[in-house]
Simulated scan of single mutants.
Amino acid sequence: MDRQLLPHLAIVLAVHRRRGFAAAAGELGMSASAVSHAVRAVEEQLGQPLFARTTRSVRLTEAGEAFLHTLAPAMAEIADAVDGFGASFGRVGGVLRINAPHVALPMAVTPLVAEMSRRHPDVEVEVTSEDGLADIVAGGYDAGVRLGHTVAQDMVAVRLTPPFKAIVVASPAYLASAGTPRNVGALARHNCIGFRFVTSGGTYAWDLLDRKAHVSVEVKGTVRVTNALYARDLALAGIGIAYIFEPLVRAELADGRLRQVLPQSAFEEPGLFLYFPRRAAQAPKLRAFVDLAKDMLGLATAGARPGSRE
């Protein structure tokens, strides 16, 4: 391979991670034309297009997916080697890239990032918030955050939160106007705030318990969101009934701005986990983040879910 292409490989990863040439250029401090030139140089060397470009989106081609599946781990190993050399002299540094859903930010990520900045100021933490099931390896991330049951078995998983319940809530004003549903079936007659996945375009069915049996409930209403935290705001505004993780509305339930509906139908989730490939576990920047998570949350990580974990 032409050695002059080596600097271009990180640019290819940035375009995929940022899902666009302009966004990658902003991250890298380059012009969009320079980013485009670098990607084109790699594509010419490989003899295959890596990205399918339209006026609205940039996505990997089949060849691009195969290439990045190999490239991303190799580039991560190089970065880890550089960071590890610095750590051997007592310095933990580098860029730690985390992919997390929006709901995980206030529940787990924000306090960790804040403390990480205080303890390890040479580490630059970059958090990408998206609610789809991202491929953290191909995306060039060091780690991701997911609900426990969605973490792949070949990943190392570290618990970030205890288990918590997904509950149904509404404002007193809405319930006074529309009435309070007494069973899961009654939700069909209410204005329910729906959730749509940006990546897949699919809508989320609410996981609930109906007479102690797990059911997935398709709901309808006048509003649908792509950020569960906004569903909370809409519920507070009296728009309708929202489905949300209980820790996110604990304060609103305590002060009466929201009320829990169908408490007997609340569904327990396994909790949020930080996950990453085993080969990344010894990277100093990630090791520091994991150790910090354990210190702050004080949770045992063994036995919560089958598979590899710490």
Score class of each variant (00 low, 15 high):
T161E: 12
L13E: 01
P101F: 02
T70R: 06
V137E: 10
A100M: 12
A10K: 12
H69E: 05
L248H: 04
S117E: 07
N227I: 01
P247K: 01
S216I: 08
V168S: 02
A66L: 13
D135Q: 10
Y141A: 05
L274D: 09
A188E: 06
V109G: 06
V103H: 04
G64K: 01
P73F: 03
M107K: 09
G201A: 14
G86Y: 04
G139A: 05
L258C: 12
V113N: 04
R3L: 07
A74P: 14
N191T: 05
G84Y: 06
P73E: 01
E124V: 03
T61L: 14
A188H: 04
S200N: 14
R91D: 05
A288D: 07
I239E: 08
S117W: 10
R17S: 06
F273N: 13
Q282K: 15
K294W: 06
T150H: 04
M116P: 04
S31N: 15
A186N: 09
P7Y: 05
P306S: 06
P111G: 12
V113Y: 07
V103S: 06
P270A: 06
A288W: 08
R232Y: 01
A22W: 12
G94I: 00
E252A: 13
E218Y: 11
V82M: 10
P284F: 07
G256H: 05
D210W: 00
V215L: 04
G238M: 07
G221W: 04
I239R: 03
L6Y: 15
